[in-house]
Write a protein that binds this DNA or RNA. Structure first.
Lengths: 201, 201
DNA sequence: CCGAAATATGACCACCCGGTCACCTCTGTA
DNA sequence: TACAGAGGTGACCGGGTGGTCATATTTCGG
């Protein structure tokens, strides 16, 4: 949490700080990002930064929050949409992709944040994972109750697969340019690898 | 590549260096790992290290190679085994799991290596990814030719999903203790999420 | 116009890093 | 024994880090 002083700042100054911090944290993971570079790039004194934030970590978590706030605005549309779980998933990744295109720096901040697994942010990471897990579990449970999803499957394993593929997709939005590819990846999840004995309509 | 001097060392000394380096690189990614700590932990002088290796990166890549060499010994069994692509995959992850249990430090070294995406080892990473991709592509092509795999799917998308899930599985071997879970995750890939109209045998 | 409180500053601190190099020791050969 | 070359060493270098603090400046109520 930034200190009150930060919010008392003229917006111009505040935004310069945010801009410089986003650029740095998009470029390097928390441990390797340099506070010194941030203050140099926004033209404020090092000491001033400590009037606004408790420490580097405080600034970082604030920036990560900002990034996720932006992202939520995009993906919320997907969950609001009518349709089966497959079209919701497709919409979700379409929106994530749009977010990555519109806000590449925020997108990189969120990606770098995930990578921290082993680092000093394990707790914050786990919190985010659980919250996303429960969102998805709700949708999945509903879909299974309606018989829309293969009942043989373990919901926990389904979440695991969804989470793994989603992470990889989002990680690679930079390379994956074709819309069609997203759909084809989701097809693999939907249809499964095993050959079907009976023809699908 | 270590210098010749390194291989001239008494095995005792050589292994002390390897042990200390493995411990450090298992604990922190390349950029954050500390050469200074390594030399302290194996009781040799900093300067000596530079008689054996060109630089930190050279030492690191040597250790990563060692780790993958160990791992190859495990997973080779899977590809040698008879059976359809699904049982090969299961065997592959079973062996990866066994490797993680038997050599937890090597396992962590390989995991940390993958995470480098944005860092200074992109080239080495990409090389490894391509080689694994071609191994898998061979198996997949054969399985599709035999009609064992759903022909509607895009092989590239199948590889993408396999790769994502495999990475996540291996990343989480520390938590995923139950054998059954591995099988259930692979079931999700095999059977797909979509409900089947006709009962499976 | 004054003084107190809030804010801004950058030199400075202790610490850590990868890498170097002049010097020392050891080993084997002539 | 003398000497050469290979190997070993750790003090040292330049550079970077996050964080602090005494001091200067600005703001603003009385």
């Amino acid at each position: 949490m930034p200190k009150q002083t930060f919010f008392n700042l003229e917006p111009e100054r505040r935004e310069a700080i945010i801009k410089a911090a986003v650029e740095e944290f998009a470029q390097a993971p928390f441990e390797q990002a340099s506070l010194t570079k941030i203050v140099e790039n926004c033209g404020i004194a090092k000491g001033s930064m400590y009037q606004y934030f408790k420490d580097k970590r405080d600034l970082y978590l604030y920036i990560v929050d900002l990034a996720y706030e932006q992202k939520r605005a995009y993906v919320a549309k997907a969950f609001a949409k009518e349709g089966d779980i497959f079209s919701v998933l497709e919409e979700y990744y379409q929106e994530s992709y749009a977010f990555a295109l519109d806000h590449p720096l925020f997108h990189q901040v969120t990606n770098k944040f995930w990578d921290n697994k082993g680092g000093s942010l394990r707790l914050e990471l786990e919190k985010g994972r659980l919250s996303r897990a429960s969102d998805f579990a709700q949708f999945l449970d509903a879909a299974m109750a309606e018989g829309k999803v293969n009942g043989e499957l373990d919901p926990e394993a389904v979440f695991f697969v969804y989470h793994a593929v989603g992470k990889e997709l989002i990680d690679n939005f930079d390379q994956v340019r074709s819309d069609g590819f997203l759909k084809r990846v989701l097809d693999v999840l939907r249809l499964g690898l095993a050959a079907r004995e009976e023809a699908e309509k």
